[in-house]
Design a protein around this nucleic acid. Structure first.
Lengths: 183, 183
DNA sequence: AGTGCCTGCGACAAACTGCCGCACCCGCAG
DNA sequence: CTGCGGGTGCGGCAGTTTGTCGCAGGCACT
Protein backbone atom coordinates (compact mmCIF):
# COMPACT_ATOMS: atom_id res chain seq x y z
CA UNK A 1 0.00 0.00 0.00
CA UNK A 2 3.06 2.12 -0.12
CA UNK A 3 2.69 2.25 -3.85
CA UNK A 4 2.33 5.93 -4.09
CA UNK A 5 5.52 7.23 -5.55
CA UNK A 6 4.54 9.72 -8.21
CA UNK A 7 6.75 11.42 -10.77
CA UNK A 8 5.73 14.52 -12.66
CA UNK A 9 7.76 15.48 -15.69
CA UNK A 10 6.70 18.84 -17.02
CA UNK A 11 8.45 22.06 -17.76
CA UNK A 12 5.57 24.22 -16.68
CA UNK A 13 6.23 25.05 -13.02
CA UNK A 14 2.69 26.14 -12.38
CA UNK A 15 1.23 22.97 -13.70
CA UNK A 16 3.69 20.93 -11.69
CA UNK A 17 2.93 22.82 -8.52
CA UNK A 18 -0.80 22.49 -8.87
CA UNK A 19 -0.74 18.83 -9.70
CA UNK A 20 1.84 18.05 -7.04
CA UNK A 21 -0.24 19.74 -4.42
CA UNK A 22 -3.37 17.93 -5.45
CA UNK A 23 -1.55 14.63 -5.37
CA UNK A 24 0.04 15.24 -2.03
CA UNK A 25 -3.33 15.98 -0.63
CA UNK A 26 -4.24 12.53 -1.76
CA UNK A 27 -1.26 11.14 0.06
CA UNK A 28 1.02 10.53 -2.86
CA UNK A 29 4.72 10.91 -2.65
CA UNK A 30 5.51 13.34 -5.40
CA UNK A 31 8.73 14.22 -7.18
CA UNK A 32 9.07 16.65 -10.03
CA UNK A 33 11.42 16.91 -12.98
CA UNK A 34 11.39 19.81 -15.39
CA UNK A 35 13.37 18.23 -18.16
CA UNK A 36 14.27 14.90 -19.63
CA UNK A 37 17.64 14.54 -18.01
CA UNK A 38 16.56 15.08 -14.46
CA UNK A 39 13.57 12.89 -15.09
CA UNK A 40 15.81 10.08 -16.17
CA UNK A 41 18.10 10.66 -13.25
CA UNK A 42 15.23 10.46 -10.81
CA UNK A 43 13.92 7.32 -12.35
CA UNK A 44 17.33 5.73 -12.03
CA UNK A 45 17.51 6.53 -8.37
CA UNK A 46 13.97 6.04 -7.16
CA UNK A 47 11.15 3.75 -7.70
CA UNK A 48 7.90 5.19 -9.03
CA UNK A 49 4.50 3.70 -9.48
CA UNK A 50 2.97 6.47 -11.50
CA UNK A 51 4.32 9.14 -13.77
CA UNK A 52 3.00 11.87 -16.01
CA UNK A 53 5.11 13.01 -18.89
CA UNK A 54 4.61 16.19 -20.83
CA UNK A 55 5.48 15.91 -24.48
CA UNK A 56 6.76 19.40 -24.88
CA UNK A 57 9.94 19.52 -22.95
CA UNK A 58 12.66 21.85 -24.06
CA UNK A 59 15.11 19.33 -25.37
CA UNK A 60 13.97 16.31 -27.27
CA UNK A 61 10.30 15.58 -27.53
CA UNK A 62 9.03 13.88 -24.42
CA UNK A 63 8.23 11.07 -26.77
CA UNK A 64 11.81 9.90 -26.78
CA UNK A 65 11.77 9.62 -23.02
CA UNK A 66 9.00 7.10 -22.99
CA UNK A 67 11.06 4.04 -23.90
CA UNK A 68 13.79 5.05 -21.53
CA UNK A 69 11.55 5.47 -18.54
CA UNK A 70 9.46 2.49 -19.30
CA UNK A 71 12.54 0.36 -19.67
CA UNK A 72 13.94 1.44 -16.37
CA UNK A 73 10.69 0.75 -14.59
CA UNK A 74 8.39 -1.44 -16.64
CA UNK A 75 5.67 -1.62 -14.07
CA UNK A 76 5.35 2.10 -13.63
CA UNK A 77 2.12 3.50 -15.05
CA UNK A 78 3.12 6.14 -17.54
CA UNK A 79 0.67 8.81 -18.63
CA UNK A 80 1.55 11.13 -21.46
CA UNK A 81 0.00 14.53 -21.02
CA UNK A 82 0.05 17.35 -23.50
CA UNK A 83 -1.66 20.47 -24.59
CA UNK A 84 -0.65 19.72 -28.12
CA UNK A 85 -2.41 16.46 -28.55
CA UNK A 86 -2.96 14.79 -31.86
CA UNK A 87 -3.98 11.39 -33.05
CA UNK A 88 -0.57 10.86 -34.61
CA UNK A 89 1.40 11.51 -31.47
CA UNK A 90 -1.05 9.45 -29.50
CA UNK A 91 -0.36 6.46 -31.66
CA UNK A 92 3.36 7.04 -31.31
CA UNK A 93 3.23 7.42 -27.57
CA UNK A 94 1.23 4.29 -26.99
CA UNK A 95 3.39 2.28 -29.31
CA UNK A 96 6.45 3.49 -27.50
CA UNK A 97 5.06 2.15 -24.31
CA UNK A 98 2.99 4.86 -22.68
CA UNK A 99 0.06 3.48 -20.77
CA UNK A 100 -2.28 6.31 -21.53
CA UNK A 101 -2.53 9.70 -23.11
CA UNK A 102 -4.54 12.75 -22.20
CA UNK A 103 -4.96 16.13 -23.80
CA UNK A 104 -3.81 18.68 -21.28
CA UNK A 105 -6.47 20.63 -19.63
CA UNK A 106 -6.99 17.62 -17.40
CA UNK A 107 -7.80 17.60 -13.73
CA UNK A 108 -6.37 15.37 -11.08
CA UNK A 109 -9.35 13.05 -11.24
CA UNK A 110 -8.83 12.30 -14.85
CA UNK A 111 -5.12 11.94 -14.49
CA UNK A 112 -5.45 9.41 -11.74
CA UNK A 113 -8.16 7.59 -13.59
CA UNK A 114 -6.03 7.46 -16.71
CA UNK A 115 -3.24 5.97 -14.67
CA UNK A 116 -5.52 3.20 -13.61
CA UNK A 117 -5.59 4.43 -10.07
CA UNK A 118 -9.15 3.79 -9.04
CA UNK A 119 -10.56 5.33 -6.03
CA UNK A 120 -14.04 5.66 -7.36
CA UNK A 121 -13.73 6.22 -11.05
CA UNK A 122 -15.09 4.15 -13.93
CA UNK A 123 -14.34 0.98 -12.05
CA UNK A 124 -17.13 -0.32 -9.97
CA UNK A 125 -18.02 -0.94 -6.35
CA UNK A 126 -15.80 0.72 -3.84
CA UNK A 127 -18.03 3.08 -2.06
CA UNK A 128 -17.17 3.60 1.55
CA UNK A 129 -17.21 7.32 1.09
CA UNK A 130 -15.47 9.09 -1.65
CA UNK A 131 -13.87 12.15 -0.11
CA UNK A 132 -13.20 13.30 -3.64
CA UNK A 133 -16.35 14.18 -5.58
CA UNK A 134 -15.69 13.16 -9.17
CA UNK A 135 -17.27 14.42 -12.27
CA UNK A 136 -15.95 14.76 -15.78
CA UNK A 137 -15.24 18.46 -15.69
CA UNK A 138 -17.80 20.39 -17.63
CA UNK A 139 -17.08 21.39 -21.16
CA UNK A 140 -17.13 25.05 -20.29
CA UNK A 141 -14.71 24.63 -17.42
CA UNK A 142 -12.36 22.75 -19.67
CA UNK A 143 -12.67 25.42 -22.30
CA UNK A 144 -11.88 28.08 -19.79
CA UNK A 145 -8.76 26.31 -18.59
CA UNK A 146 -7.55 25.84 -22.09
CA UNK A 147 -8.17 29.42 -23.09
CA UNK A 148 -6.34 30.70 -20.06
CA UNK A 149 -3.38 28.51 -20.79
CA UNK A 150 -3.07 29.51 -24.39
CA UNK A 151 -3.66 33.11 -23.45
CA UNK A 152 -0.76 33.22 -21.04
CA UNK A 153 1.31 31.30 -23.54
CA UNK A 154 0.81 34.25 -25.82
CA UNK A 155 1.48 36.78 -23.08
CA UNK A 156 -2.10 37.89 -22.99
CA UNK A 157 -2.23 38.76 -26.65
CA UNK A 158 -5.87 38.29 -27.52
CA UNK A 159 -5.52 38.37 -31.27
CA UNK A 160 -2.74 35.82 -31.28
CA UNK A 161 -4.60 33.60 -28.88
CA UNK A 162 -7.75 33.72 -30.93
CA UNK A 163 -5.75 32.81 -33.99
CA UNK A 164 -4.03 29.93 -32.27
CA UNK A 165 -7.34 28.69 -31.00
CA UNK A 166 -8.98 28.95 -34.36
CA UNK A 167 -11.59 31.11 -32.74
CA UNK A 168 -12.83 34.49 -33.72
CA UNK A 169 -11.19 37.38 -31.93
CA UNK A 170 -14.52 38.95 -31.15
CA UNK A 171 -15.73 35.73 -29.64
CA UNK A 172 -12.69 35.37 -27.47
CA UNK A 173 -13.13 38.94 -26.32
CA UNK A 174 -16.68 38.30 -25.35
CA UNK A 175 -15.80 35.14 -23.53
CA UNK A 176 -13.06 36.85 -21.59
CA UNK A 177 -15.34 39.72 -20.76
CA UNK A 178 -17.88 37.33 -19.43
CA UNK A 179 -15.95 35.64 -16.70
CA UNK A 180 -13.58 38.45 -15.76
CA UNK A 181 -10.80 36.62 -14.02
CA UNK A 182 -11.05 33.87 -11.42
CA UNK A 183 -13.12 30.82 -11.27
CA UNK B 1 6.53 -9.87 -53.25
CA UNK B 2 3.18 -11.51 -53.21
CA UNK B 3 2.47 -9.80 -49.96
CA UNK B 4 -0.43 -7.85 -51.24
CA UNK B 5 -3.49 -9.41 -49.71
CA UNK B 6 -5.62 -6.56 -48.44
CA UNK B 7 -8.75 -6.71 -46.31
CA UNK B 8 -11.20 -3.85 -45.97
CA UNK B 9 -13.72 -4.00 -43.16
CA UNK B 10 -16.23 -1.21 -43.42
CA UNK B 11 -19.97 -1.03 -43.60
CA UNK B 12 -20.00 1.87 -45.99
CA UNK B 13 -20.21 0.31 -49.43
CA UNK B 14 -19.13 3.47 -51.17
CA UNK B 15 -16.03 3.83 -49.13
CA UNK B 16 -15.20 0.19 -49.67
CA UNK B 17 -15.68 0.45 -53.38
CA UNK B 18 -13.53 3.50 -53.75
CA UNK B 19 -10.72 2.22 -51.62
CA UNK B 20 -10.86 -1.22 -53.17
CA UNK B 21 -10.59 0.23 -56.61
CA UNK B 22 -7.67 2.43 -55.69
CA UNK B 23 -5.89 -0.49 -54.13
CA UNK B 24 -6.51 -2.81 -57.02
CA UNK B 25 -5.06 -0.25 -59.32
CA UNK B 26 -1.96 -0.54 -57.24
CA UNK B 27 -1.98 -4.25 -57.69
CA UNK B 28 -3.27 -5.27 -54.34
CA UNK B 29 -5.49 -8.25 -53.88
CA UNK B 30 -8.51 -6.85 -52.13
CA UNK B 31 -11.32 -8.47 -50.17
CA UNK B 32 -14.13 -6.66 -48.43
CA UNK B 33 -16.23 -7.39 -45.37
CA UNK B 34 -19.14 -5.25 -44.29
CA UNK B 35 -19.46 -6.53 -40.78
CA UNK B 36 -17.56 -8.15 -38.01
CA UNK B 37 -18.68 -11.66 -38.65
CA UNK B 38 -17.75 -11.84 -42.29
CA UNK B 39 -14.51 -10.10 -41.51
CA UNK B 40 -13.61 -12.76 -39.02
CA UNK B 41 -14.65 -15.48 -41.41
CA UNK B 42 -12.45 -14.09 -44.14
CA UNK B 43 -9.49 -13.80 -41.85
CA UNK B 44 -9.91 -17.41 -40.85
CA UNK B 45 -9.85 -18.55 -44.43
CA UNK B 46 -7.34 -16.30 -46.06
CA UNK B 47 -4.07 -14.75 -45.30
CA UNK B 48 -3.83 -10.98 -45.31
CA UNK B 49 -0.93 -8.65 -45.08
CA UNK B 50 -2.84 -5.46 -44.61
CA UNK B 51 -6.25 -4.58 -43.27
CA UNK B 52 -8.30 -1.50 -42.54
CA UNK B 53 -11.00 -1.68 -39.93
CA UNK B 54 -13.77 0.81 -39.47
CA UNK B 55 -14.76 1.34 -35.88
CA UNK B 56 -18.39 1.95 -36.53
CA UNK B 57 -19.76 -1.32 -37.66
CA UNK B 58 -23.34 -2.18 -36.95
CA UNK B 59 -22.86 -4.79 -34.31
CA UNK B 60 -20.19 -4.45 -31.70
CA UNK B 61 -17.78 -1.60 -32.00
CA UNK B 62 -15.03 -2.44 -34.42
CA UNK B 63 -12.81 -2.16 -31.40
CA UNK B 64 -13.71 -5.62 -30.23
CA UNK B 65 -12.66 -7.07 -33.54
CA UNK B 66 -9.11 -5.88 -33.20
CA UNK B 67 -7.88 -8.52 -30.78
CA UNK B 68 -9.62 -11.24 -32.72
CA UNK B 69 -8.14 -10.33 -36.05
CA UNK B 70 -4.75 -9.60 -34.69
CA UNK B 71 -4.70 -12.92 -32.92
CA UNK B 72 -5.58 -14.85 -36.01
CA UNK B 73 -2.89 -13.13 -38.02
CA UNK B 74 -0.34 -11.42 -35.83
CA UNK B 75 1.81 -10.22 -38.66
CA UNK B 76 -0.97 -8.51 -40.54
CA UNK B 77 -0.74 -4.73 -40.45
CA UNK B 78 -3.99 -3.49 -38.99
CA UNK B 79 -5.13 0.06 -39.52
CA UNK B 80 -8.13 1.38 -37.67
CA UNK B 81 -10.03 3.94 -39.63
CA UNK B 82 -12.88 6.05 -38.38
CA UNK B 83 -14.80 9.18 -39.01
CA UNK B 84 -15.22 9.65 -35.31
CA UNK B 85 -11.59 9.79 -34.39
CA UNK B 86 -10.56 10.86 -30.94
CA UNK B 87 -7.63 10.47 -28.63
CA UNK B 88 -9.60 8.23 -26.33
CA UNK B 89 -10.50 5.68 -28.94
CA UNK B 90 -7.03 5.88 -30.41
CA UNK B 91 -5.51 4.81 -27.13
CA UNK B 92 -8.00 2.00 -26.92
CA UNK B 93 -7.37 0.78 -30.41
CA UNK B 94 -3.60 0.78 -30.15
CA UNK B 95 -3.67 -0.95 -26.81
CA UNK B 96 -5.87 -3.62 -28.27
CA UNK B 97 -3.31 -4.27 -30.92
CA UNK B 98 -4.04 -2.04 -33.87
CA UNK B 99 -0.92 -0.93 -35.68
CA UNK B 100 -2.15 2.48 -36.57
CA UNK B 101 -5.15 4.74 -36.50
CA UNK B 102 -6.40 7.35 -38.91
CA UNK B 103 -9.28 9.77 -38.88
CA UNK B 104 -11.50 8.94 -41.80
CA UNK B 105 -11.27 11.45 -44.48
CA UNK B 106 -8.07 9.68 -45.49
CA UNK B 107 -6.82 9.02 -48.98
CA UNK B 108 -5.19 5.91 -50.26
CA UNK B 109 -1.74 7.39 -49.85
CA UNK B 110 -2.20 8.03 -46.20
CA UNK B 111 -3.76 4.68 -45.64
CA UNK B 112 -0.88 2.87 -47.23
CA UNK B 113 1.63 5.00 -45.43
CA UNK B 114 -0.05 4.33 -42.12
CA UNK B 115 0.20 0.65 -42.85
CA UNK B 116 3.89 1.04 -43.32
CA UNK B 117 3.70 0.33 -46.99
CA UNK B 118 5.97 2.79 -48.68
CA UNK B 119 6.08 2.98 -52.39
CA UNK B 120 6.17 6.50 -53.52
CA UNK B 121 8.83 8.80 -54.57
CA UNK B 122 8.50 11.71 -52.25
CA UNK B 123 10.62 12.14 -49.18
CA UNK B 124 9.77 9.65 -46.53
CA UNK B 125 11.52 8.15 -43.53
CA UNK B 126 8.02 8.26 -42.24
CA UNK B 127 7.78 5.90 -39.35
CA UNK B 128 9.47 5.72 -35.98
CA UNK B 129 10.03 9.42 -36.39
CA UNK B 130 8.55 11.91 -33.98
CA UNK B 131 5.25 12.94 -35.54
CA UNK B 132 5.95 16.58 -34.80
CA UNK B 133 3.98 18.52 -32.21
CA UNK B 134 2.06 21.46 -33.57
CA UNK B 135 -0.51 24.03 -32.62
CA UNK B 136 -2.43 24.47 -29.40
CA UNK B 137 -5.46 22.44 -30.42
CA UNK B 138 -8.56 24.41 -31.12
CA UNK B 139 -11.24 24.83 -28.54
CA UNK B 140 -13.70 22.84 -30.58
CA UNK B 141 -11.23 20.06 -31.09
CA UNK B 142 -10.57 19.93 -27.38
CA UNK B 143 -14.28 19.83 -26.74
CA UNK B 144 -14.66 16.99 -29.18
CA UNK B 145 -11.91 15.00 -27.52
CA UNK B 146 -13.39 15.55 -24.14
CA UNK B 147 -16.84 14.52 -25.22
CA UNK B 148 -15.50 11.40 -26.87
CA UNK B 149 -13.60 10.48 -23.77
CA UNK B 150 -16.55 10.84 -21.47
CA UNK B 151 -18.72 9.11 -23.98
CA UNK B 152 -16.54 6.03 -24.13
CA UNK B 153 -16.26 6.13 -20.38
CA UNK B 154 -20.00 5.73 -20.34
CA UNK B 155 -19.99 3.04 -22.98
CA UNK B 156 -21.58 5.28 -25.53
CA UNK B 157 -24.58 6.09 -23.39
CA UNK B 158 -25.60 9.51 -24.62
CA UNK B 159 -27.98 10.38 -21.83
CA UNK B 160 -25.48 9.49 -19.14
CA UNK B 161 -22.73 11.38 -20.90
CA UNK B 162 -24.87 14.47 -21.26
CA UNK B 163 -25.69 14.28 -17.59
CA UNK B 164 -22.07 13.84 -16.61
CA UNK B 165 -21.10 16.74 -18.78
CA UNK B 166 -23.83 18.94 -17.41
CA UNK B 167 -24.98 19.45 -20.93
CA UNK B 168 -28.38 19.04 -22.44
CA UNK B 169 -28.96 15.68 -24.03
CA UNK B 170 -30.37 17.26 -27.14
CA UNK B 171 -27.32 19.42 -27.47
CA UNK B 172 -24.98 16.49 -27.13
CA UNK B 173 -26.96 14.61 -29.74
CA UNK B 174 -26.72 17.47 -32.15
CA UNK B 175 -23.02 17.85 -31.57
CA UNK B 176 -22.37 14.20 -32.15
CA UNK B 177 -24.50 14.21 -35.23
CA UNK B 178 -22.75 17.15 -36.74
CA UNK B 179 -19.11 16.78 -35.99
CA UNK B 180 -18.11 13.75 -37.97
CA UNK B 181 -19.28 15.50 -41.07
CA UNK B 182 -17.44 18.74 -41.00
CA UNK B 183 -15.00 19.98 -38.46
C1' DA C 1 3.10 60.85 -42.00
C1' DG C 2 2.62 55.88 -43.10
C1' DT C 3 2.41 51.00 -41.71
C1' DG C 4 1.28 47.11 -39.23
C1' DC C 5 -0.56 44.97 -35.27
C1' DC C 6 -3.50 45.20 -31.11
C1' DT C 7 -7.71 46.42 -28.56
C1' DG C 8 -12.57 47.68 -27.56
C1' DC C 9 -17.07 47.69 -29.08
C1' DG C 10 -21.67 48.30 -31.95
C1' DA C 11 -24.66 45.84 -35.10
C1' DC C 12 -26.99 42.00 -37.28
C1' DA C 13 -27.74 37.70 -39.47
C1' DA C 14 -26.63 32.90 -38.80
C1' DA C 15 -25.89 29.14 -35.87
C1' DC C 16 -26.34 27.02 -31.51
C1' DT C 17 -28.63 25.97 -27.01
C1' DG C 18 -31.97 24.85 -23.55
C1' DC C 19 -36.28 22.98 -23.14
C1' DC C 20 -40.65 20.54 -24.26
C1' DG C 21 -42.84 17.05 -26.55
C1' DC C 22 -43.60 12.81 -29.13
C1' DA C 23 -42.71 8.18 -30.96
C1' DC C 24 -40.56 4.14 -30.21
C1' DC C 25 -37.48 0.47 -28.46
C1' DC C 26 -35.93 -2.47 -24.76
C1' DG C 27 -35.67 -5.05 -20.13
C1' DC C 28 -37.88 -6.19 -16.03
C1' DA C 29 -41.04 -6.44 -12.23
C1' DG C 30 -46.06 -7.21 -11.60
C1' DC D 1 -49.62 -8.89 -21.13
C1' DT D 2 -48.98 -4.30 -19.03
C1' DG D 3 -46.73 -0.64 -16.93
C1' DC D 4 -42.72 1.72 -15.66
C1' DG D 5 -38.08 3.39 -16.14
C1' DG D 6 -34.49 4.58 -19.11
C1' DG D 7 -32.46 5.12 -23.70
C1' DT D 8 -32.61 7.11 -28.67
C1' DG D 9 -33.98 10.04 -32.54
C1' DC D 10 -35.89 14.11 -33.91
C1' DG D 11 -39.08 18.44 -34.77
C1' DG D 12 -39.80 23.02 -33.14
C1' DC D 13 -39.20 27.43 -30.87
C1' DA D 14 -37.55 31.24 -28.31
C1' DG D 15 -33.46 33.01 -26.32
C1' DT D 16 -28.21 33.21 -26.57
C1' DT D 17 -23.94 32.99 -28.52
C1' DT D 18 -21.06 33.19 -32.69
C1' DG D 19 -19.16 34.88 -37.04
C1' DT D 20 -18.36 38.94 -39.53
C1' DC D 21 -17.86 43.71 -40.69
C1' DG D 22 -16.60 47.97 -39.59
C1' DC D 23 -14.63 51.68 -37.13
C1' DA D 24 -11.80 54.43 -33.92
C1' DG D 25 -7.90 54.67 -31.21
C1' DG D 26 -3.28 53.17 -29.23
C1' DC D 27 1.62 51.91 -29.93
C1' DA D 28 5.99 51.00 -32.01
C1' DC D 29 8.86 51.52 -35.77
C1' DT D 30 10.46 53.55 -40.15
Amino acid sequence: MTERQFLIVDDDPTFCAVLARALKRRHFNVMVAHDGESAEALVREHRFHFATLDMRLEGPSGLTLIPTLKQLQPDMQLLVLTGYASIATTVEAIKLGADNYLPKPADTQQILAALGYSEDTSGQQNHSQAPIPEQPMSVSRLEWEHIQKVLTEHQGNISATARALGMHRRTLQRKLAKYPVKR
